[in-house]
Structures are given as structure tokens and as C-alpha cells.
């Protein structure tokens, strides 16, 4: 990177960072100036200090929630991608069940939370299963689309180059499905944490959702906000982790695409 482009980039970044700093400063000044009670809106600085002070008690809950979200997401990936592949091969399955699955996708998945808690108790399982349900549909629907929509020219090309059946599968079908699969994976990664936390809100003996509820019931808003920031860190880590995997797994596609607006 040349010095000029580095300066350009720095200028580009300075705008959003400046806006965020101004917003935080206004918040801090507003709360101090208008003497907003701290149990309603805490100071940004006290969110940081409270979060650091209590970091030892937040950390175990952080790991629990991350663990639930990871297990749910990984399970969804392991089930949804093969199922998408299966559906892409079978017209019969697609005709019979695809409309039904699209319909089920309209069911508010988080509404399974109370039912799962009744079935599986207060432990980690209902959170993992809810995460699984939340993550399953975007991955499944997008991988099926990816595996199904292959440009015919690629198939013809592979055939005339004498590709064997497994080569066709491995080098063409998988390859050309990947961008679509990753669309689903990123959507799922962005919502994995939500699944775990919503279940924790309802009934839990550990996890950030429970910790947040406790902090709020003690009217410790600063700790509450610090917990929410911790949750956001997990959510963003999941999403950007998946983006990182994507840019490694399908370099050819990501570099071609270039933009950052894909998340929409």
C-alpha cells in the first residue's frame, strides 16, 4: 500500500470514527449535564469501567453463550448443507417439500424457545437447539439454490474436457455453489448469537442472557450495557469470522465482488 492510498484510507475511516466519538461525547455530556439518573442511562465511561471491573464474572457467561451459539451453528451447517445438496439432486424431494420448507421458514423461529425449554429444561441444550433452528433455514435454502443453479456452460465444458462424475461434482458443482452457500452461512452466523440469547432470556442458569437480566433487576444499567456490548462482540465475531472464512475459501469470488455491501 502506498503512502497516498494509506492516507486516503485513513481519511475514509476518520469520518465514521469521528461520528462515533461525537455521539459518545454527546451521550456522556448529556447524561452529566441533565443529571439523568444512572439507573436509567449510564455514562459511556462508567459502562467501560463497570465492564472491566466485573469482567471476571462476565467471562464465564461469555464462554457459555459463545459455546451454545457455536454448537448450534456448526450443527446447522452439518445438517443444512448436505440436505441442500440432496434437495438439489432430487426433483421429487424439491417438489414435495420445498414449498413446505419455505412455509415453515415463515414461522417465527424464536417462538420455539418456550417449547424447547419445556422439553429440554434449563440447561444448554434448548439454547443450542434454538440456535440450530434459527441458523438452519438460511443455510439450507441458499445452499440448495447454489447447488441447483449451475451454469450449463460449465457442465458442458467439464464434460468435453472429459471430467469424471466425481470431478464434475467436486470441481464444478461444489465450486460454483460456494458463493451462494456463503450467503446463507453469513446470514446464519449473524443470527446464531440471537438464538442462544433469546433462549437464555426465558430460562437459564448461566449465560449472558441471564447475566443481563440479573444486572437489570439490580438496576445496574452500566453492567447491563457492558453485557450487551459483550453480546455484540460475540455477534460481530461470528459474522466477521465467517466473512474471513469466506474470503479464504472462495478468494476468486470475493476478490471479484470487491464491495462490502454484500451483507444487505
Amino acid at each position: 500500500m502506498t503512502a497516498a492510498s494509506l492516507a486516503e484510507r485513513a481519511r475514509e475511516v476518520s469520518y465514521p470514527v469521528g461520528a462515533a466519538l461525537v455521539a459518545l461525547a454527546v451521550w456522556e455530556a448529556g447524561v452529566r449535564l441533565f443529571k439523568v439518573p444512572r439507573f436509567i442511562l449510564p455514562l459511556p465511561t462508567s459502562i467501560v469501567t463497570e465492564g472491566l471491573k466485573r469482567s471476571a464474572s462476565i467471562t464465564p457467561h461469555f464462554w457459555i453463550t459463545s459455546y451454545e451459539a457455536t454448537v448450534g451453528l456448526v450443527a446447522a451447517i452439518l445438517v443444512a448443507i448436505p440436505l441442500g445438496l440432496l434437495f438439489s439432486y432430487s426433483t421429487f424431494l424439491r417438489r414435495s417439500f420445498y414449498p413446505l420448507l419455505v412455509f415453515i421458514d415463515e414461522v417465527p423461529k424464536i417462538a420455539f424457545a418456550p417449547i424447547l425449554i419445556t422439553w429440554f429444561g434449563f440447561g444448554l441444550e434448548p439454547k443450542m437447539i434454538l440456535t440450530f433452528i434459527v441458523c438452519f433455514f438460511p443455510i439450507f435454502l441458499n445452499s440448495m439454490a447454489g447447488f441447483s443453479a449451475i451454469e450449463e456452460e460449465f457442465i458442458n465444458l467439464g464434460r468435453s474436457a472429459g471430467a469424471r462424475e466425481w470431478e464434475m461434482f467436486w470441481k464444478i458443482r461444489i465450486h460454483s455453489a460456494m458463493p451462494n452457500v456463503f450467503v446463507g452461512l453469513k446470514m446464519a452466523a449473524a443470527s446464531a448469537m440471537t438464538g442462544a440469547v433469546v433462549a437464555e432470556f426465558l430460562a437459564a442458569d448461566q449465560g449472558l442472557g441471564l447475566f443481563l437480566q440479573r444486572a437489570l433487576s439490580e438496576l445496574n444499567m452500566a453492567l447491563g450495557f457492558a453485557t450487551i456490548v459483550t453480546m455484540w462482540v460475540i455477534g460481530l465475531a461470528f459474522f466477521y469470522g465467517m466473512t474471513l472464512i469466506e474470503s479464504w475459501a472462495i478468494r476468486w469470488h470475493v476478490s471479484k465482488r470487491g464491495g462490502r455491501t454484500e451483507i444487505l
Binding site: E12, Y15, P16, G18, A19, A20, A190, S191, M193, T194, V197, V198, F201, L212, Q213, L216, L219, M221, G224, F225, I228, M231, W232, G235, L236, F239, R260, T261, I263, L264
Partner: peptide
Amino acid sequence: FAEKSLFPGLVLLHITPKVTLAPIIIA
């Protein structure tokens, strides 16, 4: 100016799980 300053932050906010704010809003 507003776009340069706010758009990246909005994209970031779009990815953050906003459900987490529900207990605070209710409080």
C-alpha cells in the same frame, strides 16, 4: 458528509444483534 460519517456505523449496527437491547427497553 452524513453518508461518509454514518454509513459504516450503520452497516456495523445492522449486523449487531439488536434483540439484546430488548430487556433494557423493557426496563
